[in-house]
């Protein structure tokens, strides 16, 4: 029964949280209010911290974590599958429509305008990632020079060497440990 409720709650979350990432958060708060035996607000705050530092989409991490807390391994898997099911269905439908109309002038025109809009939106999220990762949560804090040095070296390496992103992530972790970030 719990599994069924879990499935339904996460399906709803997946269906209505538009825009990804932390967009699932308000739904999880509501879920916590509705099922106080599942997790508390404090639990949720811990979950966000964990989900942000482990690899993978935050929404997926959150649903696995919540599901496994409530109903074990099976709960984690069920919650995650329920979360992604609505978007798989919606995107498969849109992908099919797009395929049909990919040569239409209207679709081409729309994407011609949307691509730069995405660049602008990405710029905004990159800024907020910078703020939390390089400036310790607030631009006013200033930047740790060791962080800045690593950042500069990596940017240079990334543009010059064109190696796989995993390499730079590994270097970041190593330097972080060696220099005690």
């Amino acid at each position: 029964m719990t599994l069924l409720t879990l499935c339904w709650e996460f399906f709803k979350t997946g269906l209505f949280s538009v825009g990804g990432g932390l967009a699932t958060l308000p739904f999880l708060f509501e879920m916590g209010n509705k099922h106080p035996d599942w997790f508390s607000v404090q639990d949720l705050t811990n979950m966000v911290a964990v989900a942000e530092s482990t690899p993978g989409p935050i929404g997926v991490n959150m649903s696995t974590y919540v599901g496994s807390t409530v109903a074990g391994v099976l709960g984690g898997i069920i919650a995650t599958l329920s979360l992604i099911l609505p978007s798989i269905i919606v995107i498969l439908i849109i992908a099919r429509i797009l395929e049909k109309f990919s040569d239409s002038k209207l679709v081409k025109d729309v994407f011609y305008g949307l691509r730069p809009a995405v660049v602008g939106m990405l710029f905004a999220s990159v800024l907020s990632v910078f703020e939390s990762s390089l400036f310790g949560g607030n631009f006013m804090n200033g930047v740790d020079l060791r962080y800045l040095a690593l950042f500069a070296v990596l940017v240079f390496g990334i543009f010059k060497l064109k190696k796989h992103p995993i390499l730079y992530i590994g270097i970041g972790a190593l330097i972080g440990i060696i220099f005690g970030f």
Binding site: L122, F123, F151, Y168, A173
Partner: peptide, 26 residues
Amino acid sequence: SAFAGISVAVCALLVQALWKLAKSGV
């Protein structure tokens, strides 16, 4: 420490990603 280093690397990677996206869209 490892995760602090990783998040700096993610910032650096995002600069290039933004650059490539901008080149394809603008």
